[in-house]
Design a protein around this nucleic acid. Structure first.
Lengths: 225, 225
DNA sequence: AAAAGTCTGTTGTATTTCCAACAAAAGGAA
DNA sequence: TTCCTTTTGTTGGAAATACAACAGACTTTT
């Protein structure tokens, strides 16, 4: 499959590594492909010795399960994305988190130990992979912290403002287009869609923001209290 | 200062490294101490080339600042803890996050580049540090994901239940003591203390949980719908 | 152009949370 | 013990949110 090889080469995990070297490293990292049917656990909860994975085909959800058996979706994993790193690395006795295929999936497995400790010669490629893994961890941590910041706000309006503010900072402009429609934005901020819509209207009326569909503009409150 | 040396040696960042080796590595990692007065920024927002830091004395807050200048506390850093790794590693153009001393602080600075790419001989100590750093990232990511899971619940009761459930899983028992008093728990879950107290009473009345002060027991709903 | 479907905004009601104020309970110190 | 402080539980009114139902705007398809 040509697409899979491309996905692997282009994944952030193998950034700064020549395509030929990537192929060569597969054995060195204990890499192998596996397929999963829809609904099957790719990483069942509570397992030890979890592999580090790159999704090659399909979509999966990272799911948590609580004491009463209620499940919830923690995040979504799409093609090209790395997952399982944290579980593999932290080696928790019992992680109540699993990864379940929501479509038929193909996954590249790699052994964490071989990533972290492999290649005793300390070759440059291994060092690049480690460095890439650190970057991936860092950016995931930052986006989690940002989302936490939004969700820790009490009111819908505060959640919206902090999200929009962050988006403005990220794009470097007071005027920007967000990658969500209303329903998705509401899900992302863990609020009710219609209530959020109403809140957006209020903010517009107050002169805090301007918006049409997915395009928002932040307004400094100069003309208004 | 003997305490500082101990803190450094015992920090997770230097786990599995002999105390003498730690001392020897200081130069290799570009390490140096700096002191900060209360209220001063240890890591000002929006800087590039951020150092990786270990707090040696004092307490600091990781703070975010939004478009309108509203500040908020993202997390707390105490003695022995690592901070700045994510910022150093991700090299964001403009991170709207800074770290501010809330007491007089002493901080050990280290250069990220020397941690990630240093020591061309690929010595074991460097590899141990990298591995430790991955572990720290992983456990931070997992605890952030868990908190996100709590906060994404809509009602106070659901937030409580998911937190208590997680705590039961972590301790491996249905009966456990939490490390928060009511006010701290409320802050952690981003809800109002008195409302949460009332909610705990309701859950107790419904037979979902039993609790006295900080000690909680989860009850399977066998006797009750 | 008409029809069907999706997305967005509005509104009213029921529920929940927030807030403030107070009461009860649990330590700590004199 | 008594007094004082801290923590926790309770309550009622104000505010915010969830929920459902619907109308208008925009897209896509036929």
């Amino acid at each position: 499959m040509e697409k899979k090889a491309e996905l692997i080469r282009d994944s952030i995990f193998f950034a700064d590594i020549a395509p030929d070297d990537v192929t060569e490293m597969m054995g060195c990292l204990g890499a192998h492909e596996r397929s999963y049917n829809r609904g099957e656990f790719i990483l069942p909860p509570g397992e030890s010795d979890v592999p580090v994975c790159i999704m090659l085909k399909g979509v999966a959800y990272v799911m948590g399960e609580d004491y009463w058996g209620n499940r919830c979706i923690l995040s979504r994993v799409g093609p090209g994305e790395l997952f399982g790193e944290a579980l593999a690395c932290a080696r928790l006795a019992k992680a109540s988190v699993g990864v379940m295929a929501v479509e038929d999936c193909t996954v590249l497995h790699m052994q964490y130990a071989k990533i972290a400790f492999g290649c005793p010669k300390g070759c440059m490629r291994h060092r690049a992979v480690l460095s890439n893994m650190l970057s991936i961890f860092a950016s995931k941590q930052i986006s989690l912290a940002k989302k936490l910041n939004f969700l820790s706000k009490r009111t819908t309006q505060e959640k919206l403002l902090s999200y929009l503010s962050e988006e403005a900072a990220r794009t470097g402009s007071d005027s920007f287009t967000i990658p969500f429609n209303r329903q998705e934005l509401a899900d992302f901020l863990s609020v009710e869609r219609s209530a959020m819509s109403a809140e957006i209207s209020k903010m517009r009326a107050k002169g805090l923001i301007a918006c049409t569909r997915n395009h928002f503009t932040l307004l400094k409150p100069t003309e208004n209290s």
